[in-house]
């Protein structure tokens, strides 16, 4: 019991970012699965990816780390933000933007053809054809 309490306490005080990431992740995935609106699906996807980006960013904030490129003498002191994850996230964001663009472009074409953004309606329309 106490162990659980300690764990929850630790999570809420010093590791709350992970909690936040987890919540965002689940919310995003839920939107992707549950929303029948195609645009909202893409938004959910973005949210999902953003959660992962935040996860990387928070992981970059390390106690006692040191620069990987120009090693200093001995371990560093205090908090230190590793540049590597930030570079990664930058790349991932670019990928994410490209995905959103492609997704929206496809949605535009679907809308112009079927006149709907709703997945259910879309299914009915296509079944009729």
């Amino acid at each position: 019991m106490t162990e659980t309490l300690l764990f929850v306490g630790d999570l809420l005080t010093s590791q709350y970012t992970y909690l936040l990431v987890a919540i965002l992740l689940v919310v995003g995935l839920y939107i992707v699965v549950a929303s029948s609106n195609l645009v909202k699906k893409v938004i959910g996807l973005n949210l999902f990816q953003t959660a992962i980006f935040l996860f990387f960013i928070s992981a970059a904030y390390v106690q006692g780390g040191q620069s990987p490129i120009l090693p200093s003498e001995g371990a560093g002191e205090g908090l230190y933000a590793s540049p590597l994850p930030q570079v990664l996230v930058l790349t991932a964001i670019v990928v994410g933007v490209a995905l959103t663009a492609v997704g929206l472009a496809l949605i535009v074409r679907i809308y112009s053809e079927y006149g709907t953004l709703d997945e259910e309606t879309l299914r009915e329309v296509r079944a009729d054809e």
């Binding site: 496809l106 074409r109 679907i110 112009s112 053809e113 296509r126």
Partner: peptide
């Protein structure tokens, strides 16, 4: 449009 739905 068919392929757009599949692609999405």
């Amino acid at each position: 449009a068919e392929s757009a739905v599949a692609a999405l």
